[in-house]
Simulated scan of single mutants.
Amino acid sequence: MAVFDLKDLESIVYSDDILSLLVKKGIIKEQKLREQLAYEKDLHALQFELLRLQTHIINANARLLVIVEGRDAAGKGGTISRAIAKMNPKKYRVVALPKPTENEQKQWYFQRYIKHLPQEGEVVFFDRSWYNRAVVEPVFGFCSKEQHKAFMKQVGDVEKLLVKEGIVLMKIFLDISKPEQEKRLRERAEDPEKSWKIGGLDEQALEKWDDYSYYIDRMLNKTSSKDAPWIRITADDKKKTRIQVMNYILGHFPGFKPKTKVQVDKTIFKKID
């Protein structure tokens, strides 16, 4: 067991010093330290760039909607939380809608989402979205075949209207391998601080893997368009995923040029159109 003395602790000023101490004591390997420091450097740089982008959006009275979809435990919430970390909280919203009420179930399907669209000068992240009807609902039988078919037919026109009205729309899908999903779900179940993330549907994610795969592939191929393409990112590495998502957002907002850009990892990044 590593032993720390008072001098060790007194030498700590910055977070990097903690990591250096852990390497010195043999608790973590030097390579892992280098990777962590590189990640933190890139992460902080991109977070400040996203703040710059937000300022640009505010000044231009623009509107940005980022839809983040993905398999269960793919890291949607964690990725969004890193992206907004340095943004002005008054000018962004994260929308994660609960199960629709009885009254909402009688409405036009898109209606409850429309009221959450970004206002002028605002950034909105949808942590899951109307695409529940493309994947989760048909997998679990929460919608009829007719409702699913109607959604697939309407969604392209709805998104085309949003883009025509001036909303910049980005659609990101986080995918993970089956072994990685199993590992993450198991870790959540065993960690008291993460067990709240496990819902009834999450427990069936592995069991219904093939059904999910069928509807995911269909959604990505049928609902990706020139105006609103899907970006599919293999998210087995959480840190790489966060960097790639932020890079994509920064590089695809019209009229904005980021000062800092991390190299895009082509092995985990795929545009579908």
Rank of each mutant, 00 (worst) to 15 (best):
V262S: 12
Y39N: 02
P118T: 09
L220Y: 05
K91A: 14
S129V: 02
L6C: 09
V135F: 03
F256C: 06
Y248L: 12
K86P: 11
E180D: 01
L220P: 03
F48D: 11
V158A: 11
R128S: 05
K90T: 05
S20D: 15
K259L: 06
L185F: 12
E69F: 05
N132A: 15
I84V: 15
R71V: 08
F142G: 11
R232M: 13
K106T: 09
D5H: 10
V139H: 02
I272C: 10
L97S: 01
E159M: 01
V158N: 13
A205S: 04
A205N: 07
F151M: 10
G200L: 06
V66H: 00
Q154E: 15
V163D: 06
Q204G: 08
Y248H: 15
Q244H: 13
K106P: 04
M170E: 11
L174Q: 11
M246E: 03
F151N: 06
T55R: 15
L43K: 12
E182W: 09
V124E: 05
G70D: 00
N59Q: 14
K145I: 10
A83I: 00
D237Y: 06
I84M: 00
A62P: 08
K164D: 14
P118M: 10
K99S: 11
V13G: 12
E10R: 15
A45I: 04
V3A: 11
V124K: 09
N221C: 06
E190H: 14
L220G: 02
I114T: 12
W130Q: 11
E165P: 04
I84N: 00
I12P: 05
E182Q: 11
D17W: 02
G166L: 01
Y214K: 12
Q105D: 07
V158C: 08
Y215G: 00
W209G: 01
K261C: 12
K29W: 10
T260M: 10
G156R: 02
H148K: 10
V262Y: 13
L53N: 05
C143L: 12
Q31T: 06
K271Y: 00
G26I: 04
N88H: 03
H252Q: 04
L117V: 03
I12E: 01
L43Q: 03
I272V: 15
E69Q: 11
L64K: 07
F126H: 02
S225Y: 01
A85I: 08
L37F: 04
F173A: 03
R232C: 14
D191N: 15
A73K: 08
D236A: 09
I80V: 03
R52D: 10
K238I: 07
L161I: 15
H44V: 04
V95E: 01
S224V: 00
H56T: 09
H116Y: 14
N132I: 13
N103L: 14
V155G: 04
K226I: 13
A150G: 08
K153M: 11
L162R: 07
I172A: 07
T241C: 02
I167M: 05
R232K: 15
D5A: 02
E146L: 10
V13I: 14
R128G: 01
S129F: 07
L37W: 00
D16L: 13
A85C: 08
Y39C: 02
